[in-house]
Simulated assay, not measured.
Amino acid sequence: MVSVKRLQPYYIKADSDYVRVVLAYQYFAVLIEDQVYQFVPLEAKEIRINRRTQRIENTEARFAFQKGKDVRYITMTKLISLPDFLVQIHALTKAYYIQPRIEHKNDSQNESVAMIISELEYLNLKRLIDKALDEENKEDFDALVKLL
């Protein structure tokens, strides 16, 4: 069984598309069969996360962990399957994520509300015209027809 013992980035770098969590010696450790293995940068050295989708992109990466002379490799796919890894990595990088613009949602909602109100006003105007016809009120009828 594998679990994360320690996950602390050497540094975090963000560009327009990705957050890169760069790892170094003694900053990342895992428990494998109750033994602590330290990260060694033999293959993959970073975790690349999409700033918009908040998904880890480099799932093909392999990380090396060493205890004495024993080196074990763990794929990013395996690390992603560990809940404690995901919780820690997202806690470290959440400040770098690009939040979706809420204004767009509000704008579309405002447009929908405006359309509904406009439709209700139109239907109310038609009802008032029908009422003016029923009451044979020519003045109200002429004024309401002009509003159409």
Score class of each variant (00 low, 15 high):
87 V>T: 05
87 V>I: 02
87 V>A: 13
88 Q>M: 13
88 Q>D: 10
89 I>Q: 07
89 I>N: 01
89 I>V: 00
90 H>I: 05
90 H>R: 12
90 H>P: 04
91 A>W: 05
91 A>P: 00
92 L>D: 00
92 L>H: 01
93 T>S: 06
93 T>A: 03
93 T>R: 03
94 K>N: 05
94 K>R: 12
98 I>F: 09
98 I>C: 01
99 Q>V: 13
99 Q>H: 02
101 R>S: 15
102 I>P: 10
103 E>M: 11
103 E>L: 06
103 E>R: 09
103 E>P: 06
104 H>L: 14
104 H>M: 15
105 K>D: 14
105 K>Q: 12
106 N>T: 15
107 D>I: 15
107 D>L: 15
108 S>C: 13
108 S>K: 09
108 S>E: 13
109 Q>K: 15
111 E>L: 00
111 E>T: 08
111 E>F: 04
111 E>P: 06
112 S>I: 04
112 S>Q: 11
113 V>P: 15
113 V>F: 12
113 V>G: 13
114 A>L: 08
114 A>S: 03
114 A>I: 01
115 M>R: 02
115 M>F: 08
116 I>Q: 12
116 I>A: 14
116 I>N: 13
118 S>C: 10
119 E>N: 11
119 E>Y: 01
120 L>H: 10
120 L>Q: 04
120 L>Y: 03
121 E>H: 09
121 E>C: 11
122 Y>R: 12
122 Y>W: 05
123 L>Q: 07
124 N>C: 06
125 L>N: 05
125 L>C: 01
126 K>E: 03
126 K>G: 05
126 K>H: 08
127 R>L: 11
127 R>Y: 00
127 R>N: 04
127 R>M: 00
127 R>K: 01
128 L>D: 06
128 L>A: 10
128 L>N: 06
128 L>K: 06
129 I>A: 10
129 I>D: 08
129 I>C: 03
130 D>Y: 09
130 D>A: 02
130 D>W: 06
132 A>M: 05
132 A>S: 10
133 L>T: 09
133 L>Q: 10
133 L>R: 03
135 E>H: 12
135 E>P: 09
135 E>I: 13
136 E>C: 09
136 E>N: 11
137 N>L: 03
137 N>Y: 11
138 K>A: 14
138 K>R: 12
138 K>V: 14
139 E>C: 03
